[in-house]
């Protein structure tokens, strides 16, 4: 089984904070990390490979420094790594991103299974997985929480819904996006780290994936971000003061009025 895992480099949101005084983002010490959901996608791919054989290829579209997360992925069990990188990709929305990823996947000969994270923690759209499947014309299942059964040419998986979960069956090739419940990702192994160090990363440019430039980057993106701003908070901030008993009395009075 040939499995492609799509991974994205994202800024670690834990470090990004809103400065309430200036209402701006302070980014001191913001680290770039592998999107947390994608770790789970990678882990699932490596487990499938260990059980059923095959290869795991990690793929990312991003700037040259995104190679870091590819090395990290290899240290956690991936076999090969592909970086799709070109100035022409800058400013891509999800439609342009899925076009670029699909061209790259075609270039490397397609896959039996494509795994994505449920969403990236920066863009947060959860649209790349489904969009990519449509571009590849393969079926997809979002928010997979368990792969229940692996058959010769099909999978039974559980997809998380708002009211429970559905058990669904799908033939290969297919694409899944995964939620964190699916597994507990492993840490890099020593052997993996050695392998990652020596790894030759395949780098593909826009020309090498035979891309139509009109569908790339800003040009290929129907959505435009027209404004970015800090979230506004609107509290009345009326403080209930006094001794503990006085505070409690006032609170209780209000609550009893409403409830």
């Amino acid at each position: 089984m040939k499995i492609i895992v799509c991974v994205k480099q994202v800024p670690d949101a834990k470090d990004v904070r809103l400065d309430p005084k200036t209402n701006t983002l302070s980014r001191e010490g913001v680290q770039s990390i592998i999107n947390p959901y994608d770790r789970h996608a990678l882990e699932e791919a490596v487990r499938l490979k260990e059980k059923h054989g095959g290869t795991v290829i990690v793929l990312t579209m991003g700037p040259p420094q995104a190679a870091e997360i590819l090395r990290e992925s290899v240290s956690c069990g991936a076999d090969e790594a592909v970086l799709v990188s070109d100035r022409a990709f800058a400013g891509a929305d999800t439609l342009a991103t899925t076009y670029t990823l699909s061209q790259a996947i075609r270039k490397i000969g397609g896959a039996d299974l494509i795994l994505c994270g449920k969403q990236a923690i920066d863009g947060d759209t959860a649209q790349v997985g489904p969009g990519l499947a449509v571009r590849m014309d393969i079926p997809y299942v979002t928010c997979v929480r368990r792969i229940a059964q692996v058959n010769d040419k099909s999978f039974v998986v559980e997809r998380l819904m708002d009211d429970g979960y559905d058990e669904v069956e799908v033939g290969l090739p297919a694409l899944f996006t995964v939620v964190k419940e699916i597994n507990e990702p492993r840490l890099p192994s020593l052997k993996g780290k050695m392998k990652a160090k020596k790894l030759a990363i395949t780098t593909l440019t826009a020309a090498e994936i035979d891309a139509d430039v009109a569908q790339l980057g800003l040009k290929g993106s129907p959505t435009w971000v027209v404004r970015v701003f800090a979230p506004q908070l609107k509290g009345e901030r009326s403080m209930i003061a006094g001794t503990v008993q006085e505070q409690v009395d006032q609170l209780a009075e209000k609550l009893l009025e409403w409830c």
Binding site: V16, D122, A230
Partner: peptide, 16 residues
Amino acid sequence: PAFGGNIMATIACPNT
């Protein structure tokens, strides 16, 4: 909201 809720973005779709 994007970026884990740290920023708000206003988005338009002018050409399609």
